[in-house]
Amino acid sequence: MTRDEALFEFLLRLGDNTVVLSHRVSEWIGHSPVLEEDIALANTALDLIGQTRFWLGLAGEVEGKGRTADNLAYLRDAWDYRNLLLVERPNGDFGKTMMRQFLFDAWQSLMLGKLLTSSDPRVAEIAAKASKEVAYHLERSADTIVGLGDGTEDSHNRMQAALDDLWDYTGEMFISDEVDEVLSTAGIAPNAASLKEEWEELVGRILKDATLTIPDSSYAHKGGKSGVHTEHLGFILADMQFLQRAYPGASW
């Protein structure tokens, strides 16, 4: 695997995480429990779409076949998507959506922190812009996790159920493969496994404040990063890609 091949894969992973999660979060628009959360979730979804444009835009550039961010987002099928299984999990209730967001935000903030010093200036530049947005996402989702976890009996139980359900989808973040080997050797990106300890420390601290118990399981659902997805991604893409599939090249 050449360096550019590895970088292309890695950029797809970053961009597909943000586009799929953005779509999931956007499903809340008009349905959130309160107006203020509705707007906050919409802002988060928009931030993630913005990041997607950068990551997939750069992926197309690195690939060198003339594909744009739009081509990559709207014209690839599920098996070509490289996002974590975590971000395609269904929204569930508001608490579960926030739990998924928190587990991802914690990982993304650490990943972007490492990418700030990437040897590839294009990657470092995008990371610098995105890390400010993600710092806020994390602050907000962490606060919500603590508020609801250490809240009423009902909210606590819901947050614990959300954590139990999502926990086995977090291990995939830290599974390294050839892409990680090539890019960490070149100083472009950290090895996925190297983020695990910091993530566990950060997430553990917040979950403790939230009086939630981390499930006693080290099982990890995996496959997203190599294109093996759950059935949910197909439905997301059907929604997201319908227009470009039905009316190729449509613009307005």
């Binding site: 309160v34 203020e36 707007i39 906050a40 802002n43 602050e139 606060d143």
Partner: peptide, 20 residues
């Protein structure tokens, strides 16, 4: 104005509602 459970969340909500 807006609704929020406490001052900290009110600032966050204000950030999202009024400083976009």
């Amino acid at each position: 104005s807006l609704h929020a459970p406490d001052g900290e969340m009110a600032i966050k909500n204000a950030r999202d509602v009024y400083t976009r």
